[in-house]
Structures are given as C-alpha cells and as structure tokens.
C-alpha cells in the first residue's frame, strides 16, 4: 500500500508538468488549429528565464582575497554579488535564494512576448497550410530555439536550486501511520503540484468566467460565426497563444529545481506531451489535464522495480502502450470532441 501511495505521489509532479504543457498545446490547437511542436521549447525557455534571473541576481564584482590563491597561484578573486553589496549580506543572499519563485514574475511578460512574436512572426503564416507543414515548421523552430539557448548557456545542465525553505522532503508515511521514511516526498515537488493546480484552475476560470474567455470558447466551437458577429477573433486567439506560452513557461520556471535545466529539456517533454494531448482528446482542455496526471502516474508505476522485473522495459513503453489501448477503444481520446481532427 505504501508503495502505491508513493508512486501516485511521484506521478503527480511529472503529471503536473505534462498537464501544464498539454494544456497549452490544447489551447493553441483548439483556438488556432495549429499543431505546435515548438511548445516544448517554450517550456525550456521558461526554465531559462529562471536561469537568467539567477544570473542577473548573482551579477558580481570581484574583490581580491590575498589569503587564498586561485588555480594558477595568483591571489584569489572572490565574486561578491551586487545585491549583497546593495541590500546587505543576509538580505542579498535571501533574494538570490528565492530566484526561482521570483522568476515567475520575470517570466510572465517574457513568455507572453515570445509567444506573441512566435505567433505573429511565423506561425500565422501556416494557419491554412496542412498540419504536416505546421509540424515541420514548428519542429524546426524548436530546434533553432534550443540551439540558440545552447549557444548562450552551454550544453551542460545548470543548477537552479529551490529556496532553502523548501529543501528536504516531507514524511507522508509518518502522517498516514506507516513506518518512518516509507513515503517521503520532496517539499518542492509538493509546491510544484499545488502551483500547477493553481495555474490550471486559473486558466479554466479565465475561460469560463470572463467575457474574453467566453468569446474564445465560442471561437473554438465556431470560429466563422463569431467572426460574423464582428468580433476580432484572430486578435483574441493571438492573446491565447501568448497565454499558452506563459503557461508552458511557468511550468518550466518552477521545474528548474526538480531537474537542472538544459537546452534539451523541451524536447524531452514534447513527444510525451503530444501523447497526453491525443490521449486526452484533441482540443479538450479537461482531457489534457486528466491525461497528463494519468500518464504521469502510470509512468511512475511502470518504474517500480517489481514491475520492471515482471515486464522488462515496460518503463520505457508504458505511456505509448496505454495510448494505443485508449485510442483503440476510444478513438477520440478520453474526452475528445466529435469532429476535431477527424476530417
């Protein structure tokens, strides 16, 4: 029982990332009809927003420490961050420590801007082209973006730790009456899970309870009729692209303490996120979220030693296996709508 609870918990944070990326993918597909293979790159750019803010906050001047030497035997140059010089050592260190949460504020305008430029500058020219063209151009864009990031940040992962307040793990086992250390879960992953629920809730509330959201939903259902009512639906869909980019970016920002970001992290999530979208049902926002968590948890279960011993290699194919089964039994996915991607 404890092992089952443990794997469900483990699946939640991975599922959170899948759900957030798939949510953005579905928003873009549902509004613009574009299959955006560059969406993983937006997740990666979000993560590098956190890296960038961390670097800005740790911008330093050098002081010479005569008591120590560097690797060449010269007096050691010690980096002193400007924020520590300006705000004092303790306050400066605290600001640097909270770089990742602060990066949320930093990333939102950047990601909306990136999304806007991406949509207006490139993707809008492919609205009326076949999906194959859209996939090719957005996949190419993803490769360009990751190479740009690699050029500026290098190929190695860059450590971007969570604030010290969230270091360590919570002992769920003790809380539920199990033995000590049987069900442990890192605090930051809990934060990530809660954060993703908040974002998902905010997106749904925005679409459900605002006039803007109502128009967007109407446009998703019948774009032409909304256009005939004199509403500039294209403008609203462009804004939705920016919002989808921001959702992916925020998912990336908050993911950085879980895994040190590298230029390739977007591609690592992209294919699985597409599987999530298809399993959830093309164009279905609740389906994307549901499938994200479901597949995250299944992937976690498939990584158990007992399962791998029983079916070697299952951890590498489980998601695709489940996707095949679901699509065979429910061709539109878990919550897919009739008519979407069926023509």
């Amino acid at each position: 029982m404890d092992a089952i609870i443990l794997q469900i918990l483990n699946g939640l944070d991975k599922g959170s990332a899948y759900a957030l990326i798939a949510l953005g993918l579905t928003l873009i597909f549902g509004t613009l009809g574009v299959v955006n293979f560059a969406h993983g790159a937006l997740f990666m750019i979000g993560a590098f927003c956190a890296v960038t803010l961390q670097r800005i906050l740790t911008l330093s001047y050098q002081v010479i420490d005569e008591t120590k030497t560097d690797f060449l035997g010269n007096p050691l140059k010690v980096d002193v961050p400007y924020v520590q010089a300006w705000f004092g050592e303790a306050a400066g260190a605290a600001i640097i420590d909270w770089a990742v949460p602060l990066a949320i504020l930093f990333a939102i305008p950047i990601m909306i801007g990136v999304g806007f430029i991406m949509e207006r500058g490139l993707i809008k020219h492919f609205y009326k082209r076949p999906h194959a063209d859209q996939i090719l151009v957005t996949f190419g864009l993803a490769i360009v973006l990751q190479e740009v990031i690699k050029y500026f940040y290098g190929a190695n992962p860059i450590p971007t730790p969570a604030p010290d307040a969230f270091a360590g793990s919570f002992d769920f086992g003790a809380l539920l009456g199990f033995a000590e250390n049987t069900i442990i879960y890192p605090y930051w992953r809990l934060v990530y899970f809660v954060f993703s629920l908040v974002i998902i809730g905010a997106v749904f509330a925005f679409l459900q309870f605002t006039t803007f959201g109502m128009v967007v939903r109407a446009g998703m259902a019948d774009r032409e009729t909304v256009g005939l009512l004199g509403i500039n639906i294209d403008k609203r869909f462009t804004i939705m692209f920016g919002i989808a980019a921001a959702v992916a970016g925020l998912a990336g920002v908050m993911y950085t303490p879980i895994n040190s970001p590298n230029y390739h992290m977007g591609m690592d999530f992209l294919v699985l996120s597409f599987v999530v979208v298809v399993v959830g049902g093309m164009g279905s926002l609740p389906g994307a979220v549901l499938a994200g968590f479901l597949l995250g948890i299944l992937e976690s279960f498939a990584s158990m030693k007992e399962v791998i011993d029983l079916i070697p290699g299952i951890n590498q194919i489980i998601i695709y296996l489940v996707a095949i089964i679901i699509l065979l039994t429910r061709p539109r996915g878990l919550m897919g709508r009739k008519g979407v991607m069926e023509e």
């Binding site: 443990l6 918990l9 483990n10 944070d13 049987t182 442990i184 895994n259 992937e299 791998i308 590498q316």
Partner: peptide, 21 residues
C-alpha cells in the same frame, strides 16, 4: 537491488523513492 534506468530518463524520482523502502 540494481535497477536499470532508461538513458533518456530525466526525472528519477520514481526510481529513487523506493530506495528507502
């Protein structure tokens, strides 16, 4: 125990969590 992890794995939480058990 000795558990093989896929080379493409990025999040090892599901492999690490059972270690203490």
């Amino acid at each position: 125990a000795a558990v093989k992890t896929p080379l493409t794995q990025t999040d090892f939480s599901s492999y690490i969590a059972p270690v203490l058990q």
